[in-house]
């Protein structure tokens, strides 16, 4: 461990490499986390299957590559498919738990997560997959720092997507209805907003966002049926750190988490990746508890 830290001091460019990789992947974490915060804020459902939606999107891209189609083209397809999937899941499960207590929604989405990961495992097997994008690798600083072009492409796409969501939420009628419902569902209902439709749309949109994030992940990193849970935990870490309805906070926390994971992966070893995420979760939660205690409140 100390060897690795001293390596970072001796070769400062390594820091650049890790930071860059972290930020590029963190942008995609932020995307999934934004979806979680959206559903959480609007429907009050804490979706434990968030990460599994991401992985589903990734497998859609993977299927594209096996068919010989470039995975980037899977992006719109994954979004549409996942939107439909989200809508169905809403009708089948979420609609029944939305008015109920927290226990119900948590465990129902936990069950959903199991179903998704196990089905993916049956279809694709437990091997780690990647959606090969065929882009080049850039060499910076005289070849000491490498940067896969696809990561830049993914960053741009993630940014575009985020911008589209923001514009959609600000300007479209559905976006306004979603924001109104998030603030006060009962008032929105009285004002004639079909809140059930809003919930369904929000949940489906979240699935679509996750699907897109999954496509990007599958091109720049790896996917595996059981990786979903770590994306769920990452999303929770980010949302917990940033708070609901705080897009800039989500982006910053997402980028920060990406970088923190890269550094800890380098220093401690890649096998502690999930432990790092969980460690960060516990740290963030403890910080929030101390913060709330000062306000005489609890984290709930």
């Amino acid at each position: 461990m100390w060897d690795n830290i001293s390596l970072l001091v001796i070769a400062p460019l390594l820091n650049v490499q890790l930071l860059m990789d972290g930020v590029l992947i963190g942008a995609i974490f932020a995307l999934a986390a934004y979806g979680l915060a959206l559903v959480w804020g609007v429907t009050n459902v804490k979706n434990l299957a968030q990460g599994d939606f991401v992985i589903m999107g990734g497998y859609i891209a993977y299927v594209f590559t096996t068919l010989g189609i470039h995975p980037i083209l899977a992006l719109p397809v994954a979004m549409v498919l996942m939107f439909g999937f989200g809508w169905i899941i809403y009708r089948l499960i979420i609609a029944h738990v939305i008015e109920r207590d927290l226990f119900t929604s948590l465990l129902a989405t936990f069950g959903l997560a199991l179903v998704i990961q196990q089905t993916l495992n049956l279809i694709f097997g437990p091997d780690v997959q990647i959606a090969e994008s065929g882009f080049d690798i850039l060499f910076l600083f005289g070849g000491q720092v490498t940067l896969a072009e696809i990561k830049l492409v993914a960053l741009v796409l993630a940014g575009l997507l985020a911008a589209m969501i923001v514009i959609f939420m600000k300007t479209s009628r559905m976006g306004q209805a979603i924001r109104a419902t998030a603030q006060n569902a009962r008032a929105a209902k009285i004002m004639g907003i079909d809140t059930d439709r809003v919930y369904a749309f929000t949940f489906a949109m979240n699935a679509a966002i996750c699907g897109a994030a999954g496509v990007l992940i599958s091109m720049i990193w790896v996917i595996q049926p059981f990786f979903g849970i770590s994306y769920s935990i990452r999303s929770f870490v980010i949302v917990t750190a940033a708070g609901l309805g705080n897009l800039p906070g989500v982006i910053i926390a997402g980028l920060g988490l990406g970088a923190a994971e890269q550094f800890s992966g380098f220093v401690l070893g890649a096998e502690f990746q999930q432990a790092t995420v969980v460690g960060l979760l516990v740290l963030v939660l403890m910080y929030r508890q101390i913060q709330m205690r000062r306000q005489r409140r609890v984290v709930s």
Binding site: L48, I229, S232
Partner: peptide, 25 residues
Amino acid sequence: SMVFGLRGPYFAIGTLGVAIAAGEL
């Protein structure tokens, strides 16, 4: 005593995460 200031979703995901991490550690 570290996590019981937490309620609901944080508690569930926190315990889940710690159990998964324990295996790795």
